[in-house]
Each structure stands twice: as C-alpha cells, then as structure tokens.
C-alpha cells in the first residue's frame, strides 16, 4: 500500500502545513516530521509528511549505483 507523492512545504502552522506540487495545494499534517521547514521537499502519504527529501545525498548515492550497474555491464 502506500501511495505517497513528493510536495513542497509552502506554509506551516503548528502541526498543520500547506504543501504544493504541480500547482496542487493540500493541507497536510507534519506531526511525523517535527523538524520540517518552509520550502522543504517532503513525501506525503495519507495527508501526512512521512519523510523530508534529501536530493543532494540522493544524487551522490544514485551515481554510485549507476557506476555499479555500468561496471557489471562491462563485465557481462
């Protein structure tokens, strides 16, 4: 289960916040990620932020995987 989509935080008020993605705005709950800040990219499931995205680290690791697949490919 677990449809969840990335959105950006545009407003925070207590444990409620407004998140935006592709022009769609939705009021959501941030109780599960108390450290969330304005402009954070987050992932939303069932009206809650379940995690804050970390695109920078992600990019580095993804590159490592790409290399990994490539090396294997060359050996094949």
């Amino acid at each position: 289960m677990c449809l969840a989509i990335p959105m950006t935080i545009t407003k925070i008020e207590g444990n409620k916040a407004v998140a935006e993605s592709m022009g769609v705005e939705k009021t959501i709950d941030v109780s599960l990620t108390p450290e969330v800040k304005l402009d954070d990219k987050v992932i939303i499931h069932a009206g809650f932020v379940i995690e804050i995205l970390d695109p920078e680290t992600a990019k580095e690791i993804e590159q490592t995987w790409d290399e990994y697949i490539k090396t294997m490919e060359n050996e094949q």
Binding site: P6, L32, I50, E51, L53, D54, A58, I61, E62, W65
Partner: peptide, 20 residues
C-alpha cells in the same frame, strides 16, 4: 541490501514516526 530510493529512504528510517 541496497537502497535505490535514496531521495526518500534513510538507513535508520523515520525514528520519530516509529516512536509514534
């Protein structure tokens, strides 16, 4: 056990949510 979904998933997950 590798993690392809690094932009979202951390090694330790969301501890606050687990505690909840």
């Amino acid at each position: 056990v590798l993690n392809e979904y690094t932009r979202v998933v951390r090694d330790g997950g969301n501890q606050h949510a687990m505690d909840m």
